[in-house]
Design a protein around this nucleic acid. Structure first.
Length: 598
DNA sequence: GGCCATAGCGCG
DNA sequence: AAAGCGCGCTATGGCC
């Protein structure tokens, strides 16, 4: 069963296809109604946007099993249809369906400051209807039905000619085939009813993508709500150890101030801002040293007493400004760090965050992430995920064999690089990122001889990008068109079509997209199935970072949770790729402190 | 005063 | 000639 609900109500029971099973029901207390219906029917919830409605439900103590996030799905579909960047809100989608003027998406939801009227902004009713007479529930259901029809039509041959190969496995679209004409699909498939023909592989995969993206939105809200255990006292000790005492008057902490003074001395007493690249360059120039930049790797090669001091300053300054006392005051409450995750916030399908920098917690402060007494952290990260994805999506048999090993680089080295693991790694990374020069060049040639199918796969993806085409992930997430991402770059480096630097940059992007986006899908599938598996237990997902998850678990079941995480990884592999010799091993640690993982 | 581009470094 | 992907965040510095 499907139940449609809009913030503040009403709600309506539907079949999975979106046909009404009853009239709209007004409710006084949405959370209570959702809670009751969730227990009674275990439905999939259909709502405009998880990020708008679910945090409020969580604060009311209500969790749900499954949902269809209309807005995230709309974004995926628009991308697939070559309409990347068009407004994705429910109201916009409804406007497209009815021919009304399409309102732009509202600005991103503001970053939240915990304790600062938390949530008030987020439970508010949806943006005021931009269409006179809009009934939100009707719009929700009609857009949903239309989305189902658009998904069902994928790969059915009913799309315009030239919009890509039928089977998705190649993952690639032909150059210049950005689904031209797809914009005119609107409305034409409405009322086609439940598909009487079996879904195409492309439609099946996309349906899975939509389910995973929606599940990810649930996890993201739940993890933001739950928070990552954060020991303020340990964080303080780390900061004191690294930075010295905080300044009582609000300036730089003691050790940073000392370093700034010693840097000034090293430059002959001239006071400078060490964090101003321009000033540092000028100071070195006065000392007779001309530098291209003040990057760490440049400074490391500079023979001057200020250089090592500047390197130390940079590292500490970073901790102070990005994860110091001010950061903690804003983001840590009640012993938990509450980030705001943004599912699908990265074009490749990776998550982003809004404020809090949850995906960039420096290793030196991870010691503050500590399990509660009687609890443990189960930390799991996928090893060599992207190379393994390359093997499986390209179908290169020899590389798949190597990816069946626990150490893929080692297996490649043994097979093709005379045991030189470092060289095998450089070659593989170069192939995925598009590096063609430096030490990667000869290693790439070796890689090509032994794994031509894998190399052709990424090179084809690059060629499509260079010639202005679009590529897709395994499940059907589509990269943005060059005109969106590369507009500014083109102005400097020439249009993509010209074959210049911009075209090659675009090629590196599409080359990497097919890998990174598919890796993100595997990770999302892991997360979604693990979430389901842990529902009803006391263990809680508390962190997710691209290829890594942390579960906060009661001590006595931590090893069982670790098993479940490993099983989720294998389930994700099966769900995405079916039978394959490629393995996706996880490094799992059961620790008290995140700093002790692996 | 606010806005925006850039530099630089954190993470994967 | 040289050319590795994707991000967030905080700072400076130039601009209006």
């Amino acid at each position: 069963m499907l139940i449609a609900v809009v913030p503040g109500g009403p709600l309506q029971r539907l079949t999975d296809e979106g046909a009404p099973l009853g009239p709209p029901e007004r409710v006084v207390d949405v959370a209570a109604a959702v809670s009751r219906l969730a227990a009674a029917h275990r439905p999939r919830w259909l709502w405009p946007a998880t990020a708008d409605i679910y945090p409020g439900l969580l604060r009311a103590g209500v969790r749900v099993e499954r949902c269809h996030d209309l807005e995230l799905t709309e974004a995926l579909l628009l991308g697939h249809e070559g309409r990347w960047g068009e407004p994705r809100s429910m109201v916009a989608a409804w406007a497209r369906l009815t021919g009304a003027p399409v309102p732009p998406d509202p600005l991103p939801r503001a970053a939240r400051a915990p304790g600062d009227g938390q949530g008030a902004l987020f439970d508010a009713a949806p943006a005021p209807p931009a269409i006179p007479g809009l009934d939100p529930l009707t719009a929700l259901i009609e857009v949903y039905r239309h989305q189902q029809a658009r998904i069902a039509s994928l790969g059915s041959g009913r799309r315009p000619a030239g919009s890509g190969p039928g089977p998705v496995p190649s993952g690639l679209m032909s150059a210049g085939s950005e689904a031209t004409g797809a914009t005119r699909e609107d409305g034409t498939r409405q009322g086609s009813g439940p598909a009487s023909v079996p879904p195409t592989p492309e439609a099946r995969r996309f349906r899975f993508l939509v389910a995973a993206e929606s599940a990810g939105a649930l996890v993201a809200a739940e993890m933001g709500h739950e928070g990552l255990p954060w020991r303020v006292d340990i964080h303080d000790a780390i900061l004191a150890d690294l930075l010295g005492e905080a300044s009582p008057v609000g300036g730089a902490p003691r050790r940073l101030a000392e370093l700034a003074r010693r840097i000034a001395e090293a430059f002959g007493g001239q006071r400078i801002h060490p964090d101003s690249p321009a000033e540092v360059l000028r100071a070195f120039a006065r000392a007779g040293i001309t530098l291209p930049s003040t990057r760490a790797y440049v400074l490391r090669g500079v023979d001057h007493p200020a250089a090592p001091l500047l390197l130390e300053y940079k590292e500490l300054y970073r901790v102070w400004t990005a994860h110091g006392w001010a950061w903690r005051h804003q983001w840590v409450t009640g012993g938990r760090f509450h980030p705001e995750y943004v599912p699908g916030g990265v074009v490749s399908g990776r998550w982003a965050t809004r404020g809090g920098g949850a995906l960039q917690i420096p290793k030196v402060v991870r010691g503050a992430v500590v399990a509660d007494p009687g609890w443990r952290l189960v930390v799991a990260d996928a090893g060599q995920l992207e190379p393994r994805v390359l093997a499986v999506v390209s179908g290169d048999e020899a590389m798949c064999r190597a990816a069946g090993s626990g150490d893929m680089y080692g297996a490649l080295a043994a097979e093709a690089f005379a045991g030189d693991r470092d060289r095998a790694k450089v070659a593989l990374l170069g192939a995925m990122y598009g590096q063609t020069g430096g030490q990667a060049a000869p290693a790439l040639a070796t890689l090509r001889r032994s794994y031509p199918v894998a190399l052709s796969y990424v090179e084809e993806a690059a060629r499509v990008g260079e010639t202005g085409g679009l590529v897709r992930s395994w499940l059907g997430r589509t990269c943005p068109p060059a005109t969106v991402t590369w507009r500014e770059f083109e102005e400097e480096a020439g249009p993509v079509e010209s074959g210049g630097a911009a075209a090659r940059a675009r090629g590196r992007f599409t080359r990497n997209f097919v890998i990174q986006a598919t890796a993100a899908e595997w990770a999302l599938a892991l997360l979604a199935t693990l979430r389901t598996d842990l529902a009803g237990t006391a263990a809680r997902l508390v962190f997710f970072q691209h290829d890594e998850v942390i579960v906060h678990s009661p001590e006595e079941v931590a090893s069982e949770v670790a098993e479940r995480v490993g099983a989720a990884a294998q389930r994700a592999r099966r769900l995405l790729f079916g039978d394959t010799p490629v393995r996706f091993p996880l490094g799992v640690s059961i620790v008290d402190s995140y700093a002790d993982a692996k």
